[in-house]
């Protein structure tokens, strides 16, 4: 009986993430993936029923690992400032440690499979984050506001800094590396904006 080779499967997954992150959705094919992973196309189709399945599995895996990391040492009961700080730390740790995964996830999230991947990865995560903001509003630590306004103020500054970091430069081409000092600076202002 033919067996699944876990090592090969890991290589396939790694190469798929690399290819998606670097070449985008349109630049991705099973044929190319097989070549760079050093396996036959047939092997790929033994592991995965089709391209769609492979992309969904990879997207969901990245989403879940992002979620697990983001919830590390975090609880919905935390005081708002402490909890949001933890979110910033966890999210920036993940983005800096796994830039390819993050780029790949962004591409998949904006593809036809985005909705499925989102649903599968973030079921419990959404509930926890909703509880967190709900608790904070009840304790009057957070101004009640629409979810879009909340998200853009609460996380927008962090993701702008992470984008600068990814590009290696900020405004006007200034060299930039993400660091705790600049994160704290932006965080203080974010908390100020969101606190009643």
């Amino acid at each position: 009986m033919r067996l699944r080779d876990n090592l090969k499967e890991d290589i396939v997954r790694e190469e798929a993430i690399k290819m998606l992150a670097n070449e985008g959705f349109d630049g991705f094919s099973m044929n190319k993936l097989a070549k760079v992973s050093n396996v036959s196309v047939a092997t790929l189709y033994i592991y995965y029923k089709d391209k769609e399945t492979l992309l969904k599995v990879i997207g969901t895996e990245i989403g879940r690992s992002f979620m697990q990391n983001t919830l590390k040492d975090f609880s919905a009961k935390m005081p708002f400032a402490e909890g949001l700080k933890k979110q910033w730390e966890n999210r920036s740790d993940f983005a800096i440690q796994f830039p390819l995964e993050v780029a790949c996830y962004e591409i998949l999230r904006h593809s036809n499979h985005g909705e499925y991947i989102n649903e599968e990865s973030f079921k419990d995560f959404k509930t926890t984050m909703q509880e967190f903001t709900h608790n904070a509003i009840e304790r009057k630590e957070l101004i009640p506001l629409s979810i879009e306004a909340f998200w853009s103020v609460a996380y927008g500054p962090l993701y702008t800094l992470l984008r600068f970091h990814n590009e290696g430069k900020s405004i006007g081409g200034r060299k930039f590396i993400f660091n705790k000092k600049v994160m704290d600076e932006a965080f203080q202002l974010t908390i100020k904006a969101l606190t009643p």
Binding site: T53, V57, E61, N69, D93, Q97
Partner: peptide, 23 residues
């Protein structure tokens, strides 16, 4: 930081039963 990836259950079939064709 260690990430724990959950292994998804893709399929549970004997791989010898899979016939593949280029079409």
């Amino acid at each position: 930081m260690i990430i724990e990836l959950e292994k998804p259950t893709v399929m549970s079939i004997d791989y010898n039963q899979i016939l593949l064709f280029k079409t």
